[in-house]
Design a protein around this nucleic acid. Structure first.
Lengths: 200, 200
DNA sequence: GTCTATACGCGGATAGAC
DNA sequence: GTCTATCCGCGTATAGAC
């Protein structure tokens, strides 16, 4: 791995752990094992490096989500699988956390990938829900755009609760809670299981 | 208002706007219109001042929430009223945002009020739901602890989505979404309205 | 491409005068 | 109680040698 690559990876880690304001060029260089001069040769400065790091993290996050969304199964199954996917809960969402960084939000270039990623997630979930409704897998009373926003918000808020409590438990509860609420809108017809059971 | 008071208020504002790492003693002093010496006379340093600010914000937040929770009306009404209450959405949650501040989370003293506030909120909402179930206002299938976590997470995550989009719209959608999901569990019996209508 | 040197203001405080 | 002076290291680069 060359210097530029190590710099981007170190920046990604530090942005996740400490945010933009809390991350200094010096810390990035040290973690990457790269000198001052080298960093400024490859990147114009902290914002430039942060942009590369944020873009990569955003791309990765979309790819991981899309893998769940385009898997086989009913819409409800895929949404549930996405919600239950393994996550580094206590570290929080590497994209969502940037939302609290005033210097990131103040810079349209840095903000764009954050905005786009979260907007894409909502859109994609709403599409899945619409698809599920059309196939009769989901109750017609379920409103895709608002419900999709709720699902993404539950994830983002779940991270907040987990970090506050220093425990994954509230995150798991929040997920179990939405899944329970959504279950009331899943048509039991196509499956041969019993009625939905209340989950922990 | 004396110097100590102005310092605490300025700190509250800055913690909300810029977080702990992004807030310097100098910035606090300038906003408060107070000199260096005065600040260090009244407070031991940045963490001490932050503690006073965080505690006050936490107390205020609980008081505002409790005002909704203990109002007259059914449990569902009070939960809905709490969710729909006016908020400075684009500024985010002054308590929830601290969750992203590594220096706050690393200090047990600073972290405690954040943890307690969010834990209290979940507990209180779960109590309301239990009460509603016992009175037959809410469906017995609704699980109070997990659903309460979902409700708080939706709020916290709604702030994240709104800040990312620089628009209150996704926040409003997320709230509308949970309210829609919860509506399926509200017993229609005691009211004389028609069946729940899908909301925007 | 990478290193070392240099710069200048800020972050976060302490000391002592008034 | 509040002010001014002083401190030291960090944040965020730029310059120029190798």
């Amino acid at each position: 791995m060359d210097a530029a690559e190590r710099l981007v990876e170190s920046t990604r880690e530090l942005l996740w752990e400490r945010g933009y304001t809390g991350t200094s060029p010096k810390a990035i260089q040290q973690r990457a094992g790269v000198g001052q001069g080298s960093m400024y040769h490859h990147f114009a400065g902290k914002p430039d490096l942060a942009l590369a790091a944020i873009r990569r993290t955003a791309d990765e996050m979309r790819a991981k989500a899309e893998a769940q969304f385009s898997a086989p199964g009913t819409a409800a199954d895929r949404i549930a699988a996405y919600l239950r996917r393994e996550r580094e809960v206590l570290k929080g969402c590497p994209i969502g956390r940037l939302t609290q960084d005033p210097d990131v939000m103040a810079d349209p270039v840095l903000r764009a990938p954050v905005d786009e990623t979260l907007a894409w997630l909502r859109t994609r979930l709403a599409e899945l829900m619409t698809e599920g409704r059309e196939r009769g897998e989901l109750d017609a009373a379920l409103d895709p755009p608002t419900t999709a926003a709720t699902v993404v918000a539950t994830l983002q808020g779940g991270y907040v609760l987990a970090r506050a409590a220093d425990s994954v438990h509230p995150f798991d509860q929040a997920i179990a809670g939405v899944l329970g609420l959504l279950a009331a809108h899943v048509s039991a017809a196509p499956t041969d299981e019993g009625p939905p059971v209340p989950r922990a």
